[in-house]
Design a protein around this nucleic acid. Structure first.
Lengths: 152, 152
DNA sequence: TCACATTTAATTGTTCGCAATTGAATGTAG
DNA sequence: CTACATTCAATTGCGAACAATTAAATGTGA
């Protein structure tokens, strides 16, 4: 068996894009932590709030589709947000299977307090906005190709 | 307040690179799942095995530094790998604080069975090796910049 | 040598993330 | 209208991930 050079060996940790993505996600999480602690949010909770700040009063399913999460993750998370008085959960009267998530006044107000978060992340990233946008678009395209394979 | 256009609003979910990375990591995990199920590994366990296939008989701390994980994550994970007879955990005689992780024969043998995993991922990614390598390098550079900020 | 700090893994408690299942509501084919 | 299938949220169980703490071993300075 021909020994592959280390820089090409596909079974080597440092050659795997998945590990790059995995470890970058954790690095982001650690940068976010102190910023979100001040808001009383975890990172996944922050993502849910981002969704709700764009459009309020949405069923759990819609949040799940945007974030690629299921009810097993969202139900307890949303209950914690409700316990923190940031959202209200009400069963839809039109379709009683659905639970609608609406922001409370405190939930709305938190958007202002969170306004500085993205620029702090940009600073920590230490690169230009256009570079980040380009990377983001590439990563999203890769993610969507991966998700397409899963759907088969 | 001037309303920002949606494509520039930094508080919008789809404009955030962190969400791109976060959701791509989950997409990778879902692609890996059926492949790793056949090996009896979870994705983090697979990462540990990748480390050990490169260098055996290493302390927990070294694994943690490579994967950016701490003992709170690794200790129970390594105990599960030990229960699956893939590794052996022995306290170092030179430095009794350290626990050395060594592959069992089954652990070594699993490397062959795992050989096809990277190419399956490459196929699912649906892009060229050079594109993936370029993206990987960009993401690693970003990760390292983020980790540098954390260390301050 | 002795006191003190550092290193290392383990432990505890909380929160994600997902598979699998459940149960209720809704949609649909005959 | 009645079966049957589908949709949706909730639940259960397991495996990460991490903060905070603990305990033991080792290193260091006076």
């Amino acid at each position: 068996m021909a020994r592959k050079s280390a820089t090409l060996d596909p079974q080597r940790l440092d050659n795997q894009i998945c590990f790059a993505v995995y470890s970058a996600a954790h690095a982001f999480n650690r940068v976010y932590k102190p910023l979100l602690d001040r808001l009383g949010l975890t990172y996944p909770q922050y993502l849910v709030m981002l969704v709700l700040w764009e459009r309020d009063d949405v069923p759990v399913k819609d949040i799940g589709e945007k974030l690629f999460l299921d009810s097993g993750t969202l139900t307890p998370l949303l209950k914690r947000l409700e316990a923190a008085h940031l959202v209200k959960r009400t069963r839809s009267s039109e379709d009683e299977r659905q639970v609608l998530i609406a922001l409370t006044p405190q939930g709305h107000a938190l958007k202002e307090k969170a306004r500085s978060v993205p620029q702090s992340i940009l600073a920590a990233s230490d690169c230009t906005v256009s570079e980040l946008v380009a990377m983001k678009d590439e990563i999203v395209a890769l993610r969507d190709r991966l998700n397409a394979v899963i759907g088969e």
